[in-house]
Write a protein that binds this DNA or RNA. Sequence first.
DNA 1: CATGAATGAGAGTTCATTCAT
DNA 2: GATGAATGAACTCTCATTCAT
Lengths: 204, 204, 204, 204
Amino acid sequence: MGIAERKEREKADMRRRIVDAAIKMFVEEGYEKISIRNIAEKIEYSPATIYLYYKDKDELLHDMQGEAFIALGVMFEQKLTARDPLKRLEQLMQLYLQFAFDQPELYDLMFIIKAPMNTLKESEDWMNGLACYRFLEEIMEECVTQKLIRMHDVRLATLSAWAHAHGFVSLYLRCRLKISGFDEADIPKVIEKALKDYLKLLRA
Amino acid sequence: MGIAERKEREKADMRRRIVDAAIKMFVEEGYEKISIRNIAEKIEYSPATIYLYYKDKDELLHDMQGEAFIALGVMFEQKLTARDPLKRLEQLMQLYLQFAFDQPELYDLMFIIKAPMNTLKESEDWMNGLACYRFLEEIMEECVTQKLIRMHDVRLATLSAWAHAHGFVSLYLRCRLKISGFDEADIPKVIEKALKDYLKLLRA
Amino acid sequence: MGIAERKEREKADMRRRIVDAAIKMFVEEGYEKISIRNIAEKIEYSPATIYLYYKDKDELLHDMQGEAFIALGVMFEQKLTARDPLKRLEQLMQLYLQFAFDQPELYDLMFIIKAPMNTLKESEDWMNGLACYRFLEEIMEECVTQKLIRMHDVRLATLSAWAHAHGFVSLYLRCRLKISGFDEADIPKVIEKALKDYLKLLRA
Amino acid sequence: MGIAERKEREKADMRRRIVDAAIKMFVEEGYEKISIRNIAEKIEYSPATIYLYYKDKDELLHDMQGEAFIALGVMFEQKLTARDPLKRLEQLMQLYLQFAFDQPELYDLMFIIKAPMNTLKESEDWMNGLACYRFLEEIMEECVTQKLIRMHDVRLATLSAWAHAHGFVSLYLRCRLKISGFDEADIPKVIEKALKDYLKLLRA
DNA sequence: CATGAATGAGAGTTCATTCAT
DNA sequence: GATGAATGAACTCTCATTCAT
């Protein structure tokens, strides 16, 4: 049993090393620069080795995405300190933005790039994002239950808040906010402001 | 002068043909299937010819994006019939969604894919999206002026509405709404509903 | 001694399991889909294990070929019922064709693919095909002895009949009969007819 | 027009060079050693260049096959001197065998390997082999018309003679004649003898 | 006995782009 | 103005095989 466990751990370690190397490259050089060969080189293994741990590139991207979500989850865990649901909501939004601006490449992988979703079969759930999603959902649940906001459907409220934040971020990351007339440099602040305004609207 | 003009016109014609062919392929086969070679084949010119009219692929994508925005603009022009600003806003939102769901590939090009933005220099404005943006902005201006909504900054209101809609659409197009618990097939309706709720919140 | 025998038996068992799995894959997915890794997966052993029982892929293919010949031999054994040598010859031919059309992949392995023959050293005999060959040879021997056919050299007669049948089958399996002007679907029947004609020619 | 022709010629030249290099490698090193990269290296072009002239490897193999058939055709043209249909038939058989024994790799490509046939669509004819096939067919036609042989259906007679010869050759090339008990070195002679016997049987 | 881990070698293919003509 | 020809640089992925354990 000990042996099986050790093997298991070693396997997991290797996956971890692959994913870590890949994420590092990803963060440093962006999506388009990562390739199986690149990653293999980085970890000083042959490309074929990667295929011992991942069936294809999409599956690897999927795991990288998972890792990225863990990072976000940890951040929520640690920094989401407020108790009051509305305050907590605002805090979560701010953390979300902060993550996006600090780790734009990871954000891309988590919420924009298609590839990591390819491995999911039609029926399969997207587990990677679940924990983080729950953070928001739970807050929204409280907000709805306690009638703190002007929405009554938890799912809809959750989706809406997320979509709103994501809308800002993704337009920004993909350079579409040039049009808005705001100074590039101000945009993070503007977005924060806009989201706060949204929360104000939301408040009952 | 006449000659210069003719040349100019011919040049424009050729660009148009290239762009049209490219868009057609884009719509039919998706972003990943288009390549300079493919397009060249379609218009029955050599790949090299395309480089006489476009300095690189990004520039071509930029023009294709422009064309796509024209299509959206025309749609707004024709179907945005309501007079009342709030009604008009709702209508615009619906048209936006409709366009996104009908032409997901074009939407991608307009709002998600990075490449067409690469050609824009730091300082340069993004003209492609401007006209469409104005549609929304003008409505928002009226809304603000007439105090029909609970926001006072036109730019912020515009940005916010757009971001909200885009957030929904882009999460959907990139398969992230699996997590929301809604049925895939219902999502367009759900989004519409969510946006209407947003407009309700917004209303003064 | 008992122990050695048991070991021997176990070894044989394992080879059998490997060969069986390999043949199954071979029949189901064709020559090009089988690989050591695939087979290993199927029998739930590691690829390395296969190399404990087979020195290389060719040797395994050789054993698979042997198995295939056993199948053909069994078929001959069971269905070769005629007593009269000429009738028996015709029957054998038909059975041969039937096997080829029913099991084209196995036929390939037995008579066309080079690899399984690579293990045979220059001097070594090809035992795999022997038993089946004997079926034909024995019939031919009777035919010659009883002067039922217009050939006098048993070996030559045997070879000739086999070559003729194989010629048809292999041209067919490798798609060369497109040229003959016959309808694809009719070809099995045509071949049968042609071989019967050959037997008529042969008859004294 | 001159220009177009020249271009055409140059294109053909290049295809020729590719095919020639490929055939040379093929003849020298066998089927398994040729790869697009290899060929490219040989002709000192990049692999990509080959794809300007051939859509894929199968298409190239198809052309190589065509070239091989031309060689056989030329041989028939030049050395098929007999007038008498039966003599002519015997001569053709001998030439066929000679070609097979002299150029076993080419024979493989023409009659055994699957790949060059992959490019042919279901409905499409196999032109490569046609001219050579006609040589045999025409002879058979004369034989039948003049009642020189004991067969009456030209197509069937043609097919049968070809299949018979091919049967011998392909069993030999793929090492299956080890079983026949003949000495490896004698086999070409044996085959010749066997085919002559067949022709004797055939004679009216 | 069995294997986990690893790999070197190589496959076919595609792409954006360049440049002499 | 147009292009034919070419390519360097990638790409993902698969395979038979080995060897320390």
